[in-house]
Lab assay of single mutants.
Amino acid sequence: MKVMIRKTATGHSAYVAKKDLEELIVEMENPALWGGKVTLANGWQLELPAMAADTPLPITVEARKL
């Protein structure tokens, strides 16, 4: 699914347009965010693609819901 990742004042957030859902990312498998699992505030887990740590945000990526 397409997910937009952006930086907020409190960390990172994910927006899933198909579900009209925006949630804070509360847990990251990798400190650089990319190439691992993230957990959203509502409990969803997404697998993000591997990208460079300095990838500019906001960005829309293809993520997989676990």
Rank of each mutant, 00 (worst) to 15 (best):
M1L: 13
K2G: 06
K2P: 09
V3K: 01
V3E: 01
V3I: 11
R6G: 05
T8F: 06
T8H: 09
A9Y: 08
A9R: 11
T10L: 13
G11N: 03
G11A: 06
G11Q: 05
G11M: 03
H12G: 01
H12S: 03
S13R: 08
S13H: 09
Y15R: 09
Y15V: 09
V16L: 14
A17E: 14
A17P: 14
A17C: 15
K18N: 14
K19R: 13
D20K: 11
D20T: 07
E22A: 08
E22K: 05
E22F: 10
E22R: 07
E23C: 14
L24T: 12
L24M: 13
L24G: 08
I25M: 01
V26I: 13
M28N: 07
M28A: 13
M28Q: 13
M28P: 00
M28S: 13
E29L: 06
E29D: 10
N30V: 07
N30I: 06
A32L: 13
A32H: 14
L33Y: 02
G35S: 04
G36H: 02
G36E: 03
G36S: 05
K37Y: 12
K37F: 11
K37L: 12
V38Q: 00
T39P: 00
L40Y: 01
L40A: 01
L40T: 01
A41Q: 08
A41W: 04
N42H: 02
G43T: 00
G43H: 03
Q45F: 08
L46G: 01
P49R: 06
P49T: 04
A50R: 11
M51I: 08
M51R: 05
A52G: 09
A52H: 10
A52V: 07
A52L: 08
A53M: 10
D54K: 07
T55R: 04
P56D: 08
P56L: 10
L57E: 02
L57V: 04
L57A: 02
I59V: 13
I59H: 08
I59K: 08
I59F: 09
T60E: 14
T60D: 06
V61S: 03
V61T: 05
E62W: 15
E62Q: 12
E62G: 07
A63Q: 02
K65F: 15
K65D: 12
L66N: 05
L66G: 04
